[in-house]
Amino acid sequence: MAQSEQFTAPVHTVVSRMRTLGTDLPERDGVAVFNRVYLTVTEEIGRRLGAGEFPDPGAAATLDVRFAERYLTVAEEEGHPPACWRPLLQFRRHPGVRPLQFALAGVNAHVGHDLALAVVDSCRALGCEPGDLEDEFERVGDLLASMEERVREDLMPGPDLLEVADPLTHLLGAWSLERARDAAWSAARTLWALRGLPGLAREFADRLDAAVGLTGRMMLTPLGDRTGHCAG
């Protein structure tokens, strides 16, 4: 197996799972909306790995796959999901929640909670420190930023529908992917520092999960249809 194939194969596996998930879900399902935009980012990471664009492809592939698996575990399985994902799962079919809200609520849960834990997972798997993964973290984060831009471009209502007074303007203006990325990196470093204190680390992770879930719940406040009328 060529070196590029060695590192891209695990990424292709999670891409395949996302594609299967996309075919199984209704198009307007909230998880399906997030899945579509996240799939494009994961495919792009696989492409860049194959092109040799990551200085440490093994670390990049490990981080990407561990990151994706945390989302896929929630999306594919029944059971008790983390608090950060519960709002999206609860409101995924609500007619008053707009696609843009679904997409960004998924980004919030995945970046705000899953990314920090994926860094810790990767450090354990690779036998390294979080600082050793900082370059890969930043590169993956840059691709996530491009995902947010695409989400806003593709799903944001037109200027004739999205006025300054529209509640969606206020909801989305209160959340920042850049701040979420910074917080995820700080959380990852904290969790790693607490690895010798499992009880305290678990408490910190639980509080992080709950805080991200609260943000997600606010992002999914039903706003009605695009004409501004409340959906029934």
Rank of each mutant, 00 (worst) to 15 (best):
H113Y: 15
L191A: 06
L143Q: 11
P99D: 00
R86Y: 04
L194H: 07
R36A: 01
A210Q: 12
G22C: 08
V164G: 01
A2C: 10
G141A: 06
G232R: 09
A105V: 03
E44D: 13
V164E: 14
G96Q: 04
L200C: 06
R152M: 12
G213V: 08
L49Q: 04
E163Y: 01
L191H: 00
E149F: 02
V140Y: 04
P55T: 06
G30Y: 02
A205G: 02
C230R: 15
D64V: 06
S4N: 08
D209T: 04
G196L: 11
L214G: 08
R28A: 14
L144Q: 06
P87H: 12
E43I: 04
D206W: 02
V14N: 13
W192D: 08
G196C: 06
A188Y: 07
G224K: 06
A184K: 14
D154L: 07
E178L: 09
L168S: 03
D56T: 03
R86S: 11
E148S: 05
E138R: 15
F67P: 07
E149T: 11
A145W: 04
W175G: 01
G228T: 11
A201P: 03
P99V: 02
H229P: 02
G46T: 07
H113G: 07
Q90R: 15
R195C: 07
F91N: 03
A231I: 00
P157K: 12
W185M: 08
E134A: 14
T73Q: 12
A201K: 10
M1A: 13
L177Y: 07
R98E: 11
L194K: 09
P82M: 08
T8H: 01
D132A: 09
G46D: 05
V212W: 10
A118D: 11
L214W: 03
A205P: 00
F137A: 05
A75V: 01
R152E: 14
L104H: 04
L126W: 00
M1V: 09
V119C: 13
L126K: 02
L72I: 04
Q101T: 02
D142A: 15
L63H: 02
L208R: 15
R195M: 12
A109E: 11
R47F: 04
F204M: 08
V41L: 12
T227R: 15
H12L: 10
E203Y: 01
G79W: 12
Q3L: 12
R47E: 10
G79T: 06
D209S: 07
H80D: 15
P26L: 07
F54G: 09
C128V: 14
G112M: 11
L143D: 13
P157Q: 08
G79P: 07
A61T: 11
L171P: 02
A193L: 12
E129W: 07
E53L: 11
H94R: 09
E136V: 03
